[in-house]
Design a binder for these strands. Structure first.
Length: 324
DNA sequence: CGTCTTTGACCTGCGC
DNA sequence: GCGCAGGTCAAAGACG
């Protein structure tokens, strides 16, 4: 692979290549660049477009300078113009306007919405790698101390930890999106280690917690499946990668998101599409010389589910329960 | 042997 | 204060 190709794959890829546009209902069928409000956009997806949230590129890589206005310009929406999507002001506890997953709106709304806001609320894009480092450092301190040996953890320090943790949680940039796939853990080029799994209330599908395996990279992601539409996988990224996509992926050979598998229509999207968006979502070896047929290719094939209406129903049901 | 997943226990935040 | 649910830890085991 040439360096040019590599660069291209890292910076100029269409982030939604390979994703059937049914997966992204906010696209106007007649204009892929125009955000289709009538499609009742999934707020989870809109978070990617909301300038108050960091871009996926920024989220994943942390090294790119992202013009958040790109998204609002490109999709003809402001960060707070949507009834569905609202910017989460710092310290805001109103969670009604925000949400990630439809299933969360169906069951225990109170708790789920609370959790949603906690999961997704990001005051602004001021979060940076430093926040991750801070979190890492605090976490590292915790890791170094055995659970039962926190003798110094008196009430005072506990309160401090609580405060700092809460503050840091708010600062942590998060990005969530929906994908239609039968595979829970969609390959994104980075290496993840699963560190937990929890059952989700009112959902038969568990939520999995992953952490980037790269040293000093505190990026996490959460993967869960919508129980209302089991074909929808909700992925939430938290933090920013402070490194590039690994050149070698165990068992994947980084040969994911092969353009040959990508949707041709998506690949030829209007140039106004924010190519930078999610750029590092795609690993550099998209032109796998070995032509490996890997799990991601299967994923991509599974992503070609043109179930636009189903997702709209999902979104509609969600938004109707979220927007007063 | 290194890496990753699994899974029960523990921690934390929040509503009542 | 209590209970619930989400989030995290870390030991154990699986796997290549």
């Amino acid at each position: 692979m040439s360096s040019n190709e590599n660069n291209n794959s890292q910076h100029n890829y269409d982030p939604f290549q390979g994703f059937n546009r049914a997966t992204f209902p906010f696209f106007d069928d007649n204009n892929p660049c125009i955000y289709n409000q009538s499609a009742a956009p999934t707020s989870a997806v809109i978070h990617a477009l909301d300038p108050s949230y960091m871009s996926f590129t920024d989220c994943l890589n942390g090294g790119s300078v992202v013009d958040y206005n790109i998204f609002s310009r490109t999709f003809d929406m402001s960060c707070s113009s949507s009834d569905v999507v609202s910017r989460m002001d710092e310290g805001t506890t109103n969670t009604k306007k925000i949400g990630i997953s439809a299933e969360n709106s169906v069951g225990d709304n109170q708790n789920q919405n609370q959790n949603i806001s906690e999961n997704l609320s990001t005051p602004n894009s001021s979060a940076s790698c430093s926040s991750n480092e801070d979190q890492d450092s605090s976490k590292a301190k915790k890791d170094k101390q055995p659970k039962g040996s926190e003798d110094q953890g008196d009430d005072k320090s506990k309160n401090v930890n609580k405060a700092t943790k809460k503050e840091k949680r708010q600062k942590e940039p998060r990005f969530a999106f929906l994908t239609k796939s039968e595979i829970d853990n969609l390959e994104d080029g980075y290496r993840w280690r699963k560190y937990g799994q929890k059952a989700v209330k009112n959902s038969p599908y568990p939520r999995s917690y992953y952490r980037c395996t790269s040293p000093k990279c505190g990026v996490k992601k959460r993967v869960e499946r919508s129980f209302q539409d089991p074909s929808v996988v909700i992925t939430t990224y938290e933090g920013k990668h402070n490194h590039h996509i690994p050149t070698t992926l165990r068992g994947q050979d980084a040969g994911v998101f092969s353009p040959s598998i990508m949707s041709s229509s998506a690949a030829t999207m209007d140039p106004c599409f924010p190519h930078e968006f999610l750029s590092h979502f795609l690993p550099s070896s998209s032109n796998d010389p070995a032509g490996n047929t890997n799990s991601m290719q299967q994923q991509q094939q599974q992503l070609q589910i043109p179930d636009y209406g189903l997702l709209q129903d999902l979104v509609s049901s969600f938004t109707s329960s979220q927007v007063p």
